[in-house]
Write a protein that binds this DNA or RNA. Structure first.
Lengths: 232, 232
DNA sequence: CAGGGTTTCGAACAGTTGTTCGTCTAAAGA
DNA sequence: TCTTTAGACGAACAACTGTTCGAAACCCTG
């Protein structure tokens, strides 16, 4: 629990591009990556408990013992996927917040801060992109996760503190308690976008058929969150 | 989709008080209720898949075969808890919406509609009340639920249509699409209140120690949602 | 008391779970 | 060429899963 927290200080590593190369790892051990992507996909689609190691190895077309050989255990594999995707998401958010700060001399508008919070995960939700299952995995981890994941999410609090600190600066009229709650509510907009909700929204609003659907969705969310934040 | 929807028309059954007597059922079969409450509690705490029938029967201090005898199967028990709690929540929301309509001659302020949507589930979150595990169960069902539950939640769309219809009336300046999205966002405020989130909020905001914590929380949520809705 | 219907109980079922073991292959190093 | 070693493979393990069955115990009505 006293491990160094790489997400606390905003260093250059946070601003480094996402290491897509991590998927190919160190070059060898291709089956490890096959297991990784197959597990992430099945976990995101059907849940952690419902997916067995046999399901994963069958989907990845590798041997049954591969998971325990490359990751140690099923839970370790789960945690590996979770930590990598969480780090990627935190990095993307931190980068946008950093850019917003840099562009406005440390006093960005509330909208820019909320955009840095909301845009990265919602951009991942683009059905055309490769990240959709990753964000679905993360959303699922938020409710089905193990105790270890919950600890990591608690470390994530330190990551969120960047945003609460930024909002406290640009919203001096609000008490810290108010800022924390409204930040919590804003996160609710994002985390609530699970499968069933998307289906329901498709039913109600006639489907997300626009070309720029994701950008429009981000716009709507930021609009909503900004209004809640700027409330007197 | 063309099935008769009993939740669309607001009849007297919706306004009937919650049948707490349902917990005692028909008087006999006390073990059935023991199983019911033990299962709801364990499911809410640890998830659906992680809890076995042996865990439940051990917690309820009844025989292992009791679940299959009284409910048919583990999934049927799960569905029984889900349908009952969902019906109770829908009834409470419908009642508040009905009262808001009656008090304002069919043109209640946006705030009243949102209050009818948000207050019932959040009131259940009162740690002092008996309903806390029920709402935790329902929140968990929203992500871990089976296909049957998802179907029921789709019927729930019809229930939510009451609120979207009401909001369309009192927000004529908004397009239906806008109303649906903002209603979706408002629901996100509620559904995001799971365990880990509460813990995080407790850490950030110094804990929910106020006497009227739940009412204050409802106030904050309605404030936030109202601001998002009234946005130009 | 004797009756039948209801509920409880213990035991066992067949299936699935995550994990481990020994063996085999094949490529790299000496 | 021989040795080493990381990885793939099939088989099996013990533990746990939900469910079923028949007998025992119960309770209320005759």
């Amino acid at each position: 629990m006293t491990q160094p927290d790489p997400s606390l200080d905003l260093t250059d590593q946070d601003l480094a591009p996402d290491d897509e190369t991590a998927l190919t790892d160190d070059g060898c051990a291709a089956t490890r990556n096959l297991v990784f992507v197959a597990a992430e996909r099945l976990f995101a689609l059907h849940g952690f408990q419902k997916v067995s190691v046999r399901d994963i190895t069958a989907e990845a077309k590798v041997n049954l013992a591969s998971i325990n050989y490359h990751f140690g255990s099923k839970d370790a594999l789960l945690l590996d996927i979770f930590t990598r995707r969480t780090a990627e998401l935190n990095r993307a958010r931190a980068k946008m917040l950093h850019e917003a700060n840099a562009a406005h001399a440390g006093k960005p508008p509330v909208r820019a801060v909320l955009h840095a919070l909301i845009a990265p995960p919602v951009r991942w939700m683009d059905p055309k992109g490769e990240r959709l299952i990753s964000v679905q995995f993360l959303i699922r981890a938020r409710s089905e996760g193990t105790d270890q994941m919950r600890d990591i999410l608690r470390t994530d609090v330190s990551h969120l503190r960047r945003f609460s600190d930024a909002l406290l600066v640009v919203c001096p009229q609000l008490t810290p308690e108010e800022v924390y709650w409204r930040l919590h509510f804003s996160l609710g907009l994002v985390h609530n976008n699970r499968f069933a909700e998307f289906d329901r929204l498709n039913t109600l609003s006639g489907g997300l058929t626009r070309e720029d659907q994701v950008d429009v969705l981000i716009q709507r969310m930021v609009d909503f969150a900004e209004a809640g934040f700027l409330r007197a």
